[in-house]
Nucleic acid binder design. Structure first.
Lengths: 208, 208
DNA sequence: CTATTTTTATGCGAGATAGTACAAAAATGT
DNA sequence: ACATTTTTGTACTATCTCGCATAAAAATAG
């Protein structure tokens, strides 16, 4: 099937290179990330980067797509509907917080929530990608809440759409707060309070 | 008291110049705002800008301080404790949404929430300023909720600190969503749902 | 072994960028 | 009138920036 391509083989793996690009954008944002930094981080020369990914804006959009895909997978996996909705939502926040805090040199929040808004007015495609990701998060939570409503975990008259938007808000705020330097304990306080307000106290923490 | 200064008088008003700088940073963020843009927007030459405000980073920090002061004033005024907490909180969100949507050329969210996170890892002072503003918002809401609890509008065992952090989250999200292009109606839906979840349905909208 | 194809690496080049030096300008003090 | 003080505006420098042109390198095809 995939017979060997004709010319000189690539000296780098595009997937690993995109990981490196994503890392640079995550720390510095779009505008402050220079091509020299990006190329050095990927261990590749600038022309090779251009050949593989296009210009800087395209590289940034690829990074957003990559993170968005991971996030979508995480939502599908954690909010699978196998445990009580409050437990799953708690896990979702906890895992997000862990991801926001574990940058190579300190906390850095979410690439999309924390860096895309800044460049979204100069780069319409970034704005579109940002809006799409926000909508994807809303939809993922809405779907889980709809299941919970059917299962009797939420009142039958619950507006799951609006509820999902509130639950997403906590996620956005967690990303920003993590990047601003808030402690894990502070972030967890917000996460737990948000869960309690949106879907009720988790069974494991309910007084009795 | 303020006898006239000795040398050639200023040809621009520093307050108006800072407004112009703030405007540029609001649209483009810190890194993408060039000194040429800033100077042109303020109608001033670059050396005059440097003399008045210091370097670009300092200009950006002044812009953040200015917006933070306006926000603090808005919180004190709108959440004064003169009306039911749900009404005041609704007004607070509505006014914030109006501000997020009324940029000169389209919606642009909040300068601090939408642009500061992106440069906060490269510029520690920006990170500190961002964290301080987030804490200020949390405190302002917490204070109002504490008053509401004393007034019997919230249950006596309400954790007003955690509640305030959730209410702040909605504000952060509104800022980002506005900049991403969500409609006023979408933003209002989130605002109303957040009010309902945190402090209950406003009297004016309560069924009976 | 030669031709072809694709990637790599050096390096260029046009332009933007941040910050500053310096002289002219515009005010006040004496 | 003249010196002093402060701001203005032009010009400058040194550096960075993006993106690309071009030739060498490394593979396959025949």
């Amino acid at each position: 099937m995939s017979t060997k391509p004709r010319g000189r083989p690539r000296a780098f793996e595009p997937g690993a290179a995109l990981d490196a690009l994503t890392n640079v954008f995550w720390t510095h944002g779009f505008a402050a990330a220079s091509l020299d930094m990006l190329a050095a981080s990927a261990g590749v020369n600038r022309p090779s980067l251009y050949a593989a990914f296009g210009d800087k804006r395209t590289m940034y959009l690829r990074a957003i797509e990559k993170v968005a895909a991971q996030l979508e997978a995480s939502i599908a996996q954690v909010l699978a509907g196998e445990r009580p909705v409050s437990d799953e939502l708690t896990t979702f926040y906890e895992e997000s917080i862990a991801a926001y805090l574990d940058g190579e040199s300190g906390p850095r929040g979410c690439l999309i929530v924390c860096t895309a808004p800044s460049s979204s007015l100069d780069e319409p495609e970034v704005k579109d990608a940002l809006r799409a990701v926000l909508a994807m998060i809303d939809r993922g939570l809405e779907k889980r809440f709809a299941t919970a409503r059917e299962a009797g975990e939420l009142a039958t008259d619950t507006d799951v759409r609006a509820l999902a938007r509130v639950a997403s808000s906590a996620l956005h705020s967690l990303a920003i707060r993590a990047r601003a330097g808030e402690s894990r304990a502070q972030l967890l306080t917000l996460a737990r309070a948000s869960v309690a307000l949106t879907v009720g106290v988790p069974r494991s923490r309910r007084k009795r």
